[in-house]
């Protein structure tokens, strides 16, 4: 899941930055085998993220202008927060996780993770299921969240605010895995 997401994000960003780019150029610039590239392009076309135009010998790709619905805007607002984004990526990778597992994975204290999980569950982005004394969390619509993760682009303001918040996260643990690249 992580690998596919990263590949699709790279493809999407290249098409966004170079509108009209064709298949061979995409293969060359991204260094992805043509079969995998075609599979991912087909997926993104099906999901209305990109569209293609046949231009003589070439098929050219463009990103689709898209208006986000209320649910999508809600998810995107969570994706702008680094902690929530990392929680959602981990949930997409592992399916179901509890607070402790997520706390270890995103390198934040259980109380901070719990705070974010409650916000995510409260808005319906994730689903909470209680098994005995432990609460397990899953992404309510993994397809949609994965799709929006590809479209998400961090702004300068987002990274500035993240740095500022990090300064005050005194309970932050040492990171076990770096998810910045996703």
């Amino acid at each position: 899941m992580e690998f596919e997401l990263e590949t699709r994000k790279r493809i999407y960003e290249l098409i966004r930055d170079s509108p009209g780019v064709h298949l061979r150029e995409l293969t060359r610039r991204l260094d992805i085998v043509i079969g995998s590239l075609q599979y991912n392009l087909h997926y993104m076309e099906k999901k209305n993220m990109i569209y293609s135009i046949k231009d003589e010998d070439y098929v050219r790709y463009f990103v689709k202008d898209r208006k986000f619905g209320e649910d999508e805007q809600n998810i995107l607002s969570f994706l702008r927060r680094t902690a929530c984004r990392h929680i959602l990526i981990n949930l997409l990778q592992n399916g179901t996780m509890n607070n402790k597992e997520l706390s270890d994975a995103v390198a934040l204290s259980p109380s901070t993770v719990s705070w974010h999980l409650n916000k995510l569950a409260g808005s319906g982005v994730i689903t909470k299921e209680k098994v005995g004394r432990i609460s397990n969390f899953t992404v309510t619509d993994p397809e949609l969240v994965a799709e929006l993760l590809i479209l998400y682009k961090e702004s300068f303001l987002d990274s500035l605010l993240d740095s500022f918040i990090d300064m005050w996260e005194l309970d932050k643990k040492k990171s076990k895995n770096d998810l910045q690249s996703v």
Partner: peptide, 11 residues
Amino acid sequence: ISFLAYQRERR
């Protein structure tokens, strides 16, 4: 900056 951070995080 800190007020924008508060508006985003509501903490």
